[in-house]
Design a protein around this nucleic acid. Sequence first.
DNA 1: CTCCCAACCGAACGATCGTTAGGCTGAGTG
DNA 2: CACTCAGCCTAACGATCGTTCGGTTGGGAG
Lengths: 156, 156
Amino acid sequence: MQKGSLYAHIESKADLLWEVARDGAAAFHRALDEVPDEGPVIERIRAALRGHLRVVADQLDLATVFTREWRYLAGERRETFLAERRRYEERFRALFREGRDLGELRSDLDDSTAALLALSAANWAYTWLRPGAPTDELADRFTSLLLDGMRGYSSR
Amino acid sequence: MQKGSLYAHIESKADLLWEVARDGAAAFHRALDEVPDEGPVIERIRAALRGHLRVVADQLDLATVFTREWRYLAGERRETFLAERRRYEERFRALFREGRDLGELRSDLDDSTAALLALSAANWAYTWLRPGAPTDELADRFTSLLLDGMRGYSSR
DNA sequence: CTCCCAACCGAACGATCGTTAGGCTGAGTG
DNA sequence: CACTCAGCCTAACGATCGTTCGGTTGGGAG
């Protein structure tokens, strides 16, 4: 398809970015919706990381816009998008907070730092994950390291 | 300064990118050079993370090129840069490997996953860290989480 | 005082980018 | 069969980008 033909489907380049950004936000939130809100928090964290990495590998274009290209959005669209992004981060943070409050994670856990560390790893994946790569195992390795750390031995 | 005036100092835009990419690689390697190669591995990991985040906060432009914009390098320059980048990652991985082999970290540690997780967090920082931010404390929070995990209690 | 030289300005060039508009094609529909 | 319509191509427009080049400025050095 030639570049001009694209304009039979979109209004402007900025509109296209906005559409893709919304699709990306929806994809990541949908992945989080699949995570049960009952059961062991540890399993839910694992599921959330799996879901995120799946979106990255299966819809790399969406993920790239969601994680980086969104900053070329302008004005109100940018603000609206950022609110969705913050909500996504907050949903992640809530997982860690709940795990701590329920006694499944250490009582002195800083949920902001925990979410930042987990989401940094998840977000950074868009730079090197290739489409179609198997990601569940990778997500589980991350989860295991995040939960049990590098020092001492696993309690599982 | 007008855009044209820049060409009194550089040959081309591509050359400028190449210079900055080399400066960035040098800055990150120099930060790693400051990490002692003796002493507890755990302290060296902390120092390495501190060093990386310091470069990000103090030289955000260099860090941005080192972590993302390098991919607009072409041909041989790109390959040369990527070799330096891989060497940087390998130096990180070696820290975790040594920690495992010396018994300071768990014996079943996957040093590749560990380095990937730590460097993902360190790299992602360029998207949100603002220049001049205090980073040592952040690096230490990351280090603590990575070492001891979110489950159980710290052994320190 | 004159000259030099580094550093920047200002205008212009071709190339690329975002966008528009008109035309072609081919698979339905009546 | 004529007609529609979605989907693509092609050529062109103004704007921006990377780059060049001659000119201007403001300090030193002789």
